[in-house]
Simulated assay, not measured.
Amino acid sequence: MTGEARVEDYLALLKPSVMQLVVFTAIVGLVVAPGGINPIIGVIAIACIAIGAGASGALNMWYDSDIDAIMSRTQNRPIPAGRISREEALIFGSVLSVFSVLLLGLATNWVAAGLLAFTIFFYVVVYTMWLKRSTPQNIVIGGAAGAFPPIVGWAAVTGSVSMESVVLFLIIFLWTPPHFWALALYKQSDYGAAGVPMMPNVVGEASTKMQIFVYTVLVAASAMLPTWLGFAGGVYTAVAVVTGASFLILAWRLLRTKEDVAMRKAARVLFNYSLSYLFIVFFAFLTDNLLTRFGSFM
């Protein structure tokens, strides 16, 4: 029996903290895409991507309500807390999914709408229903869902996918494993109790820390691709170098830390930094692009 749901509970189903990153990376893809877009249509496109991301979150909470009730960080979500029923969450997420895809297609183009539909499908079916409970590589493969927003934003403007948007996708895709495995290191008891095969619970802490370091090297290298491929300038390059080096230092410290309490602290520091890292890198890419455009009109 569920209690009376409040507006805040339905908003919580949308995972607003995750949506912030989705919206921001989509905005970057949309703004830097060549050709430009009508500002009103652009706002509608970003709103559709945000709604689609929120719908994915609601459907994820619908399916994962059993394990959410076990894990300490998710026990107060609307479904396990009894404020919203699973059926209400399923209907809510499904309606928003269809609405966001149809509106994006009508407002921009069906390439962008198709990519948004695939993103929702990938997160809900491929990641949530299949990978999350079956393999420690869940977050590696499933991370693709969170990496699609800049491609969708780019496609909303151009009706196509380009090398630039794929590079933005790659940065997020490679960032996802060290970000979530750092979280899993200091929350591994939660995942263990829920039976979710996150990397530390399956292969151990030492192997997880090494894989975090390897992926950090890869994401720092991928962040240099815009410079190496010639579509980013000095501002972006400087930021990518500094933030990438900082990421590597924190991952190295985690790798070298042996004592349990210190290791969990280092993992938490790395996790918190990784949140800032992606925002900073994408903001630098956006700023660099806008400065280049502004300079071309001078």
Rank of each mutant, 00 (worst) to 15 (best):
P78C: 05
L90Y: 13
F99R: 07
T108P: 08
G105H: 03
V98D: 07
I70V: 14
G82E: 08
S94H: 00
L102M: 14
P80Q: 08
G93D: 12
L116Y: 07
L102F: 12
N109P: 11
A113D: 10
L90Q: 12
W110E: 02
V98N: 12
L103G: 01
L90T: 12
N76F: 12
Q75P: 02
L96N: 01
L96P: 05
S85R: 02
A112E: 05
A107K: 03
S94Y: 00
M71Y: 04
V111F: 15
S85Q: 05
S94E: 00
T74S: 11
I84M: 13
I70Y: 00
G93M: 13
S85W: 00
I91R: 12
F92G: 10
I70R: 09
R83A: 12
Q75C: 01
N76C: 10
V101W: 04
V95P: 10
F92H: 12
T108D: 00
W110A: 06
P78L: 06
A113M: 10
G93H: 13
R77C: 00
Q75S: 09
I91E: 11
V101Y: 01
W110S: 02
V98A: 15
P78N: 00
V101H: 02
A89V: 01
I84T: 15
A113F: 11
R73H: 09
S97E: 07
S72R: 13
L116A: 03
S72V: 13
S72P: 04
V111Y: 15
V95S: 05
N76G: 15
R77L: 09
G114S: 08
S85F: 03
A113P: 11
G105I: 06
A107Q: 00
S97F: 14
T74N: 01
D68N: 06
L115F: 00
A107E: 05
A89R: 08
L96R: 04
L96Y: 00
N109L: 13
E88A: 15
S100M: 04
A113T: 11
S85K: 01
L116D: 05
L106V: 14
L103W: 06
A69H: 12
E88G: 07
L96S: 06
L103S: 01
L104V: 06
P78Q: 08
V101D: 02
R77M: 08
T74G: 04
I84C: 12
V111C: 14
N76M: 13
F99Q: 07
S97R: 09
A113N: 09
P80I: 01
E87Y: 14
F99L: 15
V98G: 13
V95K: 05
V101A: 00
S97Q: 08
N76H: 15
G82Y: 05
R77G: 03
A112G: 03
V98R: 11
L102H: 10
T74I: 08
I79H: 05
A89W: 03
N109K: 14
V98Q: 04
L106F: 15
I79G: 04
